[in-house]
Amino acid sequence: MKELIAKHAIGKPVSGTAMVANDGFSARYDLDRIGGTFSRPTHKLAGQSYVGKVLVLDTAKGGVASAWMLREMASRGIIPLALVFNSVNPILAQGAAFGGVTMLSGFEGEVTAQVPDGARVEIDPSRRILRIL
Protein backbone atom coordinates (compact mmCIF):
# COMPACT_ATOMS: atom_id res chain seq x y z
CA MET A 1 0.00 0.00 0.00
CA LYS A 2 1.24 3.45 -0.88
CA GLU A 3 -0.09 6.84 0.23
CA LEU A 4 0.14 10.12 -1.68
CA ILE A 5 -0.54 13.43 0.07
CA ALA A 6 -2.37 16.21 -1.80
CA LYS A 7 -2.13 19.92 -1.12
CA HIS A 8 -5.82 20.51 -1.80
CA ALA A 9 -8.86 18.37 -1.10
CA ILE A 10 -12.64 18.55 -1.15
CA GLY A 11 -15.52 16.12 -0.81
CA LYS A 12 -16.34 12.84 0.88
CA PRO A 13 -14.22 9.67 1.28
CA VAL A 14 -14.51 7.26 -1.66
CA SER A 15 -12.84 4.11 -2.93
CA GLY A 16 -12.78 2.76 -6.46
CA THR A 17 -10.76 1.94 -9.55
CA ALA A 18 -8.26 4.44 -10.94
CA MET A 19 -8.35 5.46 -14.60
CA VAL A 20 -5.03 7.17 -15.32
CA ALA A 21 -3.70 9.28 -18.20
CA ASN A 22 -1.18 12.07 -18.55
CA ASP A 23 -3.70 14.34 -20.24
CA GLY A 24 -5.99 17.25 -19.39
CA PHE A 25 -9.63 17.43 -18.40
CA SER A 26 -12.57 19.59 -19.35
CA ALA A 27 -16.14 18.38 -19.06
CA ARG A 28 -17.13 20.36 -22.14
CA TYR A 29 -14.14 19.73 -24.36
CA ASP A 30 -13.40 16.12 -23.58
CA LEU A 31 -16.58 14.28 -22.63
CA ASP A 32 -19.71 12.86 -24.17
CA ARG A 33 -21.66 13.59 -21.02
CA ILE A 34 -24.73 11.72 -22.20
CA GLY A 35 -22.90 8.54 -23.10
CA GLY A 36 -20.40 8.83 -20.26
CA THR A 37 -17.26 8.48 -22.37
CA PHE A 38 -14.26 10.56 -23.35
CA SER A 39 -15.20 11.91 -26.76
CA ARG A 40 -12.35 14.16 -27.84
CA PRO A 41 -10.58 12.07 -30.49
CA THR A 42 -7.12 13.20 -29.40
CA HIS A 43 -7.65 12.54 -25.68
CA LYS A 44 -5.60 9.63 -24.33
CA LEU A 45 -8.76 8.11 -22.87
CA ALA A 46 -10.87 8.60 -26.02
CA GLY A 47 -13.74 6.16 -26.24
CA GLN A 48 -13.43 4.93 -22.64
CA SER A 49 -16.16 5.22 -20.02
CA TYR A 50 -15.37 7.47 -17.08
CA VAL A 51 -18.48 6.58 -15.09
CA GLY A 52 -17.71 5.52 -11.52
CA LYS A 53 -13.94 5.76 -12.02
CA VAL A 54 -11.37 7.67 -10.01
CA LEU A 55 -9.90 9.81 -12.79
CA VAL A 56 -6.21 10.55 -12.31
CA LEU A 57 -5.12 13.20 -14.82
CA ASP A 58 -2.61 15.99 -15.26
CA THR A 59 -4.50 19.26 -15.15
CA ALA A 60 -7.68 21.18 -15.88
CA LYS A 61 -8.05 22.43 -19.41
CA GLY A 62 -10.46 24.64 -21.22
CA GLY A 63 -13.31 26.73 -20.03
CA VAL A 64 -15.70 27.45 -17.23
CA ALA A 65 -18.52 25.05 -18.11
CA SER A 66 -17.28 22.28 -15.81
CA ALA A 67 -18.42 24.41 -12.88
CA TRP A 68 -22.03 23.65 -13.85
CA MET A 69 -21.51 20.35 -15.62
CA LEU A 70 -20.22 18.27 -12.70
CA ARG A 71 -23.48 18.84 -10.81
CA GLU A 72 -25.52 18.09 -13.91
CA MET A 73 -23.56 14.89 -14.49
CA ALA A 74 -24.01 13.92 -10.82
CA SER A 75 -27.76 14.45 -11.07
CA ARG A 76 -27.90 11.71 -13.74
CA GLY A 77 -25.30 9.44 -12.15
CA ILE A 78 -23.05 9.71 -15.24
CA ILE A 79 -20.01 11.03 -13.41
CA PRO A 80 -16.56 9.96 -12.27
CA LEU A 81 -16.36 8.77 -8.69
CA ALA A 82 -13.58 11.25 -7.95
CA LEU A 83 -11.07 13.52 -9.67
CA VAL A 84 -7.32 13.58 -8.97
CA PHE A 85 -4.99 16.07 -10.65
CA ASN A 86 -1.49 17.41 -10.53
CA SER A 87 -3.07 20.85 -10.64
CA VAL A 88 -6.55 22.30 -11.14
CA ASN A 89 -7.95 25.64 -12.13
CA PRO A 90 -10.60 27.35 -10.00
CA ILE A 91 -13.36 26.00 -12.21
CA LEU A 92 -12.87 22.41 -11.13
CA ALA A 93 -12.70 23.43 -7.47
CA GLN A 94 -15.90 25.44 -7.91
CA GLY A 95 -17.50 22.58 -9.83
CA ALA A 96 -16.50 20.02 -7.21
CA ALA A 97 -17.90 22.23 -4.44
CA PHE A 98 -21.13 22.86 -6.36
CA GLY A 99 -21.54 19.26 -7.50
CA GLY A 100 -20.43 17.48 -4.34
CA VAL A 101 -17.59 15.72 -6.15
CA THR A 102 -14.52 14.40 -4.33
CA MET A 103 -11.30 15.90 -5.67
CA LEU A 104 -7.61 16.06 -4.79
CA SER A 105 -4.88 18.13 -6.42
CA GLY A 106 -1.24 19.08 -5.92
CA PHE A 107 1.18 16.22 -5.22
CA GLU A 108 4.90 15.71 -4.78
CA GLY A 109 5.92 14.47 -8.21
CA GLU A 110 3.81 13.49 -11.17
CA VAL A 111 0.64 11.84 -9.87
CA THR A 112 -0.21 10.13 -13.15
CA ALA A 113 3.14 8.30 -12.99
CA GLN A 114 2.59 7.18 -9.40
CA VAL A 115 -0.88 5.65 -9.68
CA PRO A 116 -1.12 2.55 -11.90
CA ASP A 117 -4.03 2.50 -14.32
CA GLY A 118 -6.66 0.14 -12.98
CA ALA A 119 -5.35 0.23 -9.40
CA ARG A 120 -7.77 0.08 -6.50
CA VAL A 121 -7.55 3.40 -4.60
CA GLU A 122 -9.06 5.11 -1.56
CA ILE A 123 -9.39 8.86 -1.10
CA ASP A 124 -9.72 10.52 2.28
CA PRO A 125 -10.23 14.26 1.65
CA SER A 126 -10.21 15.17 5.35
CA ARG A 127 -6.58 13.98 5.50
CA ARG A 128 -5.80 14.86 1.85
CA ILE A 129 -4.68 11.27 1.23
CA LEU A 130 -4.82 9.10 -1.88
CA ARG A 131 -4.14 5.51 -0.89
CA ILE A 132 -3.11 2.94 -3.53
CA LEU A 133 -4.26 -0.46 -2.25
Binding site: G63, A65, A67, W68, M69, R71, E72, A74, S75, R76
Partner: peptide, 10 residues
Protein backbone atom coordinates in the same frame (compact mmCIF):
# COMPACT_ATOMS: atom_id res chain seq x y z
CA UNK B 1 -21.52 31.84 -17.87
CA UNK B 2 -24.81 29.96 -17.83
CA UNK B 3 -25.81 28.37 -21.12
CA UNK B 4 -28.32 25.63 -20.48
CA UNK B 5 -26.30 22.92 -22.17
CA UNK B 6 -23.96 23.35 -19.23
CA UNK B 7 -26.63 23.78 -16.58
CA UNK B 8 -28.93 20.98 -17.66
CA UNK B 9 -32.13 20.43 -15.74
CA UNK B 10 -30.19 20.24 -12.46
Amino acid sequence: MADTESLGEA
